[in-house]
Design a protein around this nucleic acid. Structure first.
Lengths: 191, 191
DNA sequence: GTACTATTTCAACAACTGTTGAAATAGAGG
DNA sequence: CCTCTATTTCAACAGTTGTTGAAATAGTAC
């Protein structure tokens, strides 16, 4: 039971295990209620080791909630050219990200953190920027940005009820059904 | 500077001042980042006095975020009978609550708390229950509840971006304009 | 004036937090 | 076999937190 010091016998990547434990903890309990001691315990490791690999708690958080794959790269092709069904593509893109477990944990961590600090969650700005840049370029008038943010608000709201609060039946619903229902309403904001 | 013990000279309602300070603090900083010492300092009072009036921190929070006026009473008449513009009335009701400063603080506290604990925010269940009970009674099919929650998700999402994150331009937009834009989309969920 | 009660502060505890410096260990390179 | 370096734990500090029990004060009822 008493773990000795020094390197581990086998070649398990301890650093990665810490990062995984941290991401899961931040997603489940948020920033403030996640203690470094608990992350260390989940990774079966001493708390000091967490500080050794990732510096401060804020640093660990930043490293934990960074999306592991290049979203920014896959977005543009997802949105595409055709403005007729841009709403559906946008919704499909958004929710398909959330269905990837690792990405979901990262996004949950980001969302929970931004809601306690009041910072803007990266996704929100990301969505509305994407809408503005690729879809709504031909939209005119002063409510251009407002419409983009309303799109973001709806998708974020769904993510909130489904993934954070886990309200039923929306939490257990088929993602495809949600996309099918949300997309038309988003589409009306874009045209 | 050194405040003596015993009752205050004038008839200021100290208990109420504590409650006001607590509501404002919970709304601004959330549950975890609001310390009892800070609430006490804002109310110009000793921390022990907070515990004397309201018991534990959780009790203080509960007392702080309870909506000060009877929403449940004014809701039914707000929703009304006519299903044609139920969406607009629902949106108007929802956002008019948020424009009352006291209520906004209480709702912000609830929302922030539920997002860190994962509990269901009272408003969310409230909205979808209202939709189910008064508006969507003639709706059939298995997606009845889902539609109701999608309505709640959109309005909550707007509240999130507008009041919590304070994203521009939605944060400074005229409430009437937001209602005007959101209502039609909500309406499509109801019919 | 005296006794009482509600109000308010004082002082402190016990628990938990992030963080740090040093010591011990195991394996790799010579 | 010796040395070095990366890895891991140990032990502790310094700050903050919610909470508590007792003491002091002011007003009120007798």
């Amino acid at each position: 039971m008493m773990a000795r010091r020094g390197p581990r016998p086998a070649g398990g990547d301890t650093r990665q295990e810490i990062l995984d434990a941290a991401r899961a903890a931040f997603a489940e309990s948020g920033y403030d209620r996640t203690t470094i001691r608990r992350v260390a315990a989940d990774a079966a490791v001493d708390p000091a080791l967490v500080h050794h690999y990732f510096g401060t708690k804020e640093d660990l958080f930043t490293a934990s909630v960074s999306i592991p794959f290049p979203i920014a790269q896959s977005l543009p092709e997802m949105i595409g050219e055709d403005p007729a069904n841009a709403g559906e593509r946008l919704a499909r893109f958004f929710f398909s990200i959330w269905e990837v477990p690792e990405a979901r944990e990262a996004l949950l961590g980001q969302l929970r953190h931004s809601l306690v600090t009041g910072e803007q969650p990266a996704i929100a700005g990301f969505i509305s920027a994407a809408v503005l840049g690729r879809v709504a370029e031909r939209m005119t008038g002063p409510d251009r940005e407002l419409r983009a943010e309303l799109v973001a608000s709806h998708m974020l709201g769904v993510a909130l009820l489904r993934y954070v609060v886990k309200m039923e039946p929306i939490a257990s619903a088929d993602p495809e059904q949600i996309i099918e229902m949300v997309a038309p309403r988003i589409q009306t904001y874009l045209t």
